[in-house]
Nucleic acid binder design. Structure first.
Length: 876
RNA sequence: GCGGGCGUGGCGGAAUCGGUAGACGCGCCGGACUCAAAAUCCGGUUCUGGCGACAGAGUGUCGGUUCGACUCCGACCGCCCGCACCA
C-alpha cells in the first residue's frame, strides 16, 4: 500500500543502503565506456558540513548522476583536505591531539555527506594527513627536487605573527594572513620554494586554452602572473660619485616604457638595493632613511597610504643616449627589490608615481609623448601624468614616432650597443609571479623529507625510507613549531655519511596536499607510487571541477603548476588538470539582531508576515527582533542554518532541491525558510502526481495511432527532457528546476482534464510514459524520491542505473503555431497558422484578423515582415 | 587607479544568433474543501486608466541603429567582485 505522504525520513536511508549494498557508484577503472570525471573541491574537515558544502556537492552530484545515466563511466570521488592549522589550534585550545580531532571531524562529516545521498565512490576516499597519502607527496617532492623544480633559498618572506608561520604571496590578502587575518611581517628566512616561475610563461599562455573556465578566474590568474615585456638597461654611473665598496660602476634597471627615456628626470633604487646599502655606508642619514622605509614597508596598509619619499644618494647615472646627461640616483620607498631589477629610471610626465615624486623634490618633468588632440608646442604635464597614446616629442631621433615604434627603436639601438663587451640593454619579459614558498613552521602538515648534515649539506631522505612520519607525542605548550621542540624526532643520522644530522622540521604548505589529490583519486590504493601514469592519463583532465571562487588563484594556480611538474617527472602526460571549471556562489541568509545588539540564530526567531510586512519575533521572549541585511552565513553574525537540521526535518532531497532552484548557480543564493517549504511542498506534489499516474490502469496502448491528447502529454514530457539536457550540460540548475515544475504543472492539468472528459483510461500509457520521464529527469536532483517513485511506477531496478530516456525530437515541433502580430512594432494580435504556411498565407491570415484590422484603422500596410514561425510585423 | 561582472515585477530570477518581456519559484489577494485549522486544489498578481473588451507606459538614465532592441552601438549613473606603488 502506497502511503499518501512521502516519508523522506524512512525512504532516504533505505535507498542509500540499497545504493551502497549494490555498489552502484563504485567506479571501475577497466570499464570500457567513455570516462567522465566530475569533482568538487574536497572539504577541510573543520567539524561539520555547512550549507556551502551542500550547494557545492548537490551541483556536482546532479552532473555525476546525469552523466552516469547518459552512459558515461563516471568518476566522482571524495576526500579530505585534512592537514592544517585549525587542528593545531584545537590541540592548543582543547588539549585534543590534531590527529584525533581531524579524524573525529572526518567521521562526522563523512556521515553528514552520506546523508545527502551523494553518488560518490567512497571506496576511493583519501585523507591528506594519512601517511599512505603524504608518503607519495614526499616522493613527489624528492622527484621535483631532482628535476630542479625545488629551491632552498634565503628570501624575504611573509611572516604571520599569529599563526607563527611563513605564508606564500598568494596567501596574503590585503597585507593580512588569509587564515589568521593578522598583519603579516616581512622576514628574511631560508625556505623551500617550488619554482613555479619556471612555468610563468606557460601558465599565462595556457589560460587561453581553458575555454570552459570562467573568464573572471582566467583574468585573475593572468593578472597575478603579471607578465610584462620591457627592456633591461644598464646605466653607467659617474665614477666620481660612486660610494666605496659599491657593487660596481653601473646600475641595471627594468622598464616597460623605454620610449620615454628622453623624459627621464631621475633614477631610483629600492631601499634594500645593493647600491643603496653601499651609499648608506658613507651617509648615516641615508642609512636612517632606509631603516625608516624598512619599518613602514612591512605592513601593506602603510604602503598604500605612504607618501612617495626618496633620498638622493649623491650618485649620478649617465643617460645611455647622451654621455653629458647626468641623472640623480635616489633611494625611494616605492621601489620594490623583488620586482624587475629593483631599480628604475623615472619619467615623471608619463608615470603618476614618478610625477608625484618629482613634484615633491622639485625635479621637474618633460613630456615626451604628445596626445593626439594636443599641440606639441604647448602640451605640459602638471599634476596628472599622461599614460595614453600619442606621438613622440622632445626626444631627438624618436620625435614623430608612435610609442610602439619608439620602444622598438630604443630597444634596437641599445641592444646593439655594448659596454665592456656586453650589450647595454636586453629585451626582457618580466613576471610579477614569485616562486611558491612552501615551508611552514607548523606540526600538522606533510614533513619535508630532507636532512641537514654539517658535512654533506642538505640531503634528501632516500625513497625507501619514506614516509617521514609525524611523531604523535608532541606538545603544544610552547609557541612555535612543535616538531622543532620535539626531544628526539629531528635527531637522525645523515643518510649520506652517517654522522649525526638534523631532520628538516618545517612541513609543507597544505596547498601542496590539494595540488595533486585529483590525480591520486584515479588509483588511490596504489602503494608503491604516487599515481599510476596510465590511469592519470585516462582520467585527467577533470571534466568538470566545481568549487568556490576563493581558490581562483591559490589552489587552482598551484594545481596547474603541480600538474606540469608531475609531467616533467613522468607522472602525467598533460599540463592542465581541470578542463572545465565552475565557481559557485555563496549561501547567504538574513541576519537578526535583538534590541541589545546581539545577533540571533534563525532557529531562535519566528517570522510573521502580515499584509506583506515581515516581522521577526524572539521565540523565547516574544520580543521584536530587527531583520538585518542578507549576508554570507557566518558564525559571527549567527545567520547559520545547519544542514543536519534541514535534512532531519525535511530530508536531503528537499535541501538539494532548494539549493539548486531559484538562483543561478554562480550567484549567491538566499536561504529562506519559505523557500525550503516550497521545495518540501514540491516533494509531496511530485509524489502525489506519480501516485496518480501509478494508479491508472495500465492497459497497454491499444491501436496504433496516438490521440491528440496522448501526444500532448508526451510533448510536455519531451519538452522538459530536452530543456533539462541542455541546461544540465550548461550547469544551469535553476532552469532545470523550472523545466521540472513546468512538466509537473502540465501533467497535473492534463490529468485533471482527462478525468473531466473521461479519457483517463485511454491516456494511461501516455501518462505512464510521461511519468517515467518525469521521474528520470527528477532523479539527478532528488535521487531518493526518484527511486521511491520509480518503484511506485512498477519499474525494475534502480532509477540511478536506468539509462537516460531517448529524446523524441518529433514531439518538439508544433503543427499549428500561434504567431504574434505586431503593427509598427507593437503587438496587436495572435494568429494561428499551419506550421508550414508560406509567407503569402500568413499575410492573408494576418490581414484577415479582426484585431489587426482595428489597429490598421483603414490604413494600407506599406510592408509586412514575416519571420517564419516567429513573428509578423505589419508596417504602415 | 586598473581589470571583470551586474542593473528586468513586492522578492529570487526567465527571456541574450535582435522577434509575444516577466517562464518557474517565493510572497500576496480571492475562492473551493473543512465545525475549525493544517494540508490540498482552482483563479488572480508589472504599473496606470477602465466593470469590461481594451488602451497607454514599461527591462538603471539619455541618445543612436533597425520593420522590430532587455538583447547591438555611443555617452552617463549606480552596485558588486578582484587586483593595486609591479616600473
Amino acid at each position: 500500500m502506497r502511503p499518501e505522504r512521502y516519508n523522506a525520513k524512512e525512504a532516504e536511508p533505505k535507498w542509500r543502503e540499497t545504493w551502497a549494498d549494490q555498489a552502484v557508484f563504485q567506479t571501475r577503472n577497466d570499464d570500457p565506456r567513455p570516462k567522465y570525471y566530475v569533482l568538487e573541491m574536497f572539504p577541510y574537515p573543520s567539524g561539520r558540513i555547512h550549507m556551502g558544502h551542500v550547494r557545492n556537492y548537490a551541483m556536482g552530484d546532479v552532473v555525476a548522476r546525469y552523466k552516469r545515466a547518459r552512459g558515461f563511466n563516471v568518476l566522482h570521488p571524495m576526500g579530505w583536505d585534512a592537514f592544517g592549522l585549525p587542528a593545531e589550534r584545537a590541540a592548543i585550545d582543547r588539549g585534543i591531539h590534531p590527529k584525533a580531532w581531524t579524524y573525529e571531524n572526518i567521521a562526522t562529516m563523512r556521515s553528514q555527506l552520506q546523508s545527502m545521498g551523494l553518488s560518490l565512490d567512497w571506496s576511493r576516499e583519501l585523507a591528506t594527513c594519512d601517511p599512505s597519502y603524504y608518503k607519495h607527496q614526499q616522493r613527489l617532492f624528492l622527484d621535483f627536487l631532482k628535476a630542479g623544480l625545488v629551491d632552498r633559498k634565503t628570501a624575504k618572506v611573509n611572516w604571520d605573527p599569529v599563526d607563527q608561520t611563513v605564508l606564500a604571496n598568494e596567501q596574503v590578502i590585503d597585507g593580512r594572513g588569509w587564515r589568521s587575518g593578522a598583519l603579516v611581517e616581512s622576514r628574511e628566512l631560508t625556505q623551500w620554494f617550488f619554482k613555479i616561475t619556471d612555468y610563468a610563461q606557460d601558465l599565462t599562455d595556457a589560460l587561453d586554452t581553458l575555454e570552459r573556465w570562467p573568464e573572471k578566474v582566467r583574468v585573475m590568474q593572468r593578472n597575478w602572473i603579471g607578465r610584462s615585456e620591457g627592456l633591461k638597461i644598464r646605466f653607467a654611473l659617474d665614477s666620481e660619485t660612486l660610494p666605496p665598496d659599491g657593487p660596481g660602476p653601473e646600475l641595471e634597471i627594468y622598464t616597460t616604457r623605454p620610449d620615454t627615456l628622453f623624459g627621464a628626470k631621475f633614477m631610483a633604487v629600492a631601499p634594500d638595493h645593493p647600491l643603496a646599502k653601499a651609499a648608506a655606508a658613507r651617509d648615516p642619514k641615508l642609512a636612517a632613511f632606509i631603516e625608516e622605509c624598512r619599518r613602514t614597508g612591512t605592513a601593506a596598509e602603510a604602503i598604500e597610504t605612504a607618501e612617495k619619499q626618496g633620498y638622493d644618494t649623491g650618485i649620478r647615472a649617465i643617460h645611455p643616449f647622451d654621455s653629458s646627461w647626468q641623472l640623480p640616483v635616489y633611494v625611494a620607498n616605492f621601489i620594490l627589490m623583488e620586482y624587475g631589477a629593483g631599480a628604475i629610471f623615472g619619467c615623471p610626465a608619463h608615470d603618476q608615481r614618478d610625477l608625484d615624486f618629482v613634484n615633491k623634490y622639485g625635479l621637474g618633468n618633460l613630456p615626451v609623448v604628445c596626445p593626439p588632440d594636443q599641440d606639441p608646442a604647448t602640451f605640459v604635464v602638471t599634476d596628472v601624468a599622461y599614460d595614453g597614446d600619442g606621438r613622440m616629442i622632445n626626444s631627438r631621433f624618436l620625435d614623430g614616432l608612435t610609442i610602439d615604434e619608439a620602444k622598438e627603436e630604443v630597444a634596437r639601438r641599445l641592444t646593439a650597443e655594448t659596454r665592456d663587451g656586453s650589450p647595454v640593454a636586453e629585451r626582457k619579459v618580466n613576471f610579477r609571479l614569485r616562486d611558491w614558498g612552501i615551508s611552514r613552521q607548523r606540526y600538522w602538515g606533510c614533513p619535508i623529507p630532507v636532512i641537514h648534515c654539517e658535512a654533506c649539506g642538505t640531503v634528501p631522505v632516500p625513497a625507501d625510507q619514506l614516509p617521514v612520519t609525524l611523531p604523535e607525542d608532541v606538545s603544544f605548550e610552547r609557541p612555535g613549531n612543535p616538531l622543532d621542540h620535539h626531544p628526539t624526532w629531528k635527531h637522525v643520522p645523515c643518510p649520506s655519511c652517517g654522522a649525526p644530522a638534523r631532520r628538516e622540521t618545517d612541513t609543507m604548505d597544505t596547498f601542496v596536499d590539494s595540488s595533486w589529490y585529483f590525480a591520486r583519486f584515479t588509483d588511490p590504493q596504489l602503494a608503491d607510487a604516487p599515481v599510476n601514469r596510465a590511469e592519470v592519463d585516462h582520467w585527467l583532465a577533470v571534466d568538470q571541477y566545481i568549487g568556490g571562487i576563493e581558490h581562483a588563484i591559490l589552489h587552482l594556480l598551484y594545481s596547474r603548476f603541480f600538474t606540469r611538474a608531475m609531467r616533467a617527472c613522468g607522472y602525467a602526460g598533460l599540463d592542465e588538470p581541470f578542463a572545465g571549471l565552475f565557481t559557485q556562489g555563496m549561501v547567504v541568509h538574513e541576519t537578526y539582531r535583538a534590541a541589545d545588539g546581539s545577533w540571533l540564530q534563525p532557529s531562535e526567531i519566528r517570522i510573521e508576515s502580515e499584509g506583506g510586512q515581515r516581522r521577526a519575533m524572539h521565540l523565547g521572549t516574544g520580543a521584536t527582533v530587527e531583520i538585518g541585511s542578507i549576508e554570507k552565513m557566518s558564525k559571527s553574525k549567527r545567520n547559520v542554518v545547519d544542514p543536519d537540521d534541514i535534512i532531519t526535518s525535511y530530508g536531503a532531497d528537499t535541501a538539494r532541491w532548494f539549493m539548486l532552484s531559484d538562483s543561478p548557480p554562480e550567484r549567491d543564493v538566499i536561504w529562506t525558510e519559505e523557500g525550503v517549504q516550497g521545495a518540501s511542498r514540491f516533494v509531496q506534489r511530485a509524489w502525489r502526481l506519480v501516485g496518480e499516474i501509478a494508479d491508472l490502469s495500465g492497459s497497454s496502448a491499444n491501436g496504433t495511432g496516438r490521440s491528440v491528447e496522448a501526444t500532448a502529454v508526451l510533448k510536455a514530457a519531451h519538452r522538459a527532457l530536452a530543456g533539462l539536457e541542455e541546461d544540465v550540460e550548461r550547469l544551469r540548475f535553476n532552469r532545470c528546476v523550472a523545466h521540472i515544475y513546468e512538466l509537473a504543472n502540465a501533467l497535473q492539468a492534463q490529468l485533471a482534464a482527462a478525468r473531466g472528459n473521461g479519457s483517463l483510461e485511454a491516456l494511461g500509457p501516455a501518462f505512464r510514459e510521461a511519468g517515467r520521464i518525469f521521474v528520470q529527469v527528477l532523479a539527478p536532483m532528488m535521487p531518493h524520491l526518484a527511486e521511491e517513485c520509480w518503484q511506485a511506477l512498477g519499474h525494475d531496478g534502480l532509477v540511478a542505473q536506468a539509462p537516460w530516456p531517448a529524446l523524441d525530437r518529433s514531439l518538439l515541433v508544433e503543427e499549428a503555431i500561434v504567431l504574434p502580430v505586431q503593427v509598427n512594432g507593437k503587438k496587436r494580435a495572435d494568429v494561428s497558422v499551419a506550421r508550414d504556411a508560406d509567407a503569402a498565407a500568413v499575410e492573408a491570415a494576418v490581414l484577415a484578423d479582426e484585431a489587426v484590422r482595428r489597429a490598421l484603422d483603414g490604413r494600407a500596410p506599406k510592408k509586412i515582415i514575416v519571420v517564419p514561425q516567429r513573428i509578423v510585423n505589419v508596417v504602415v
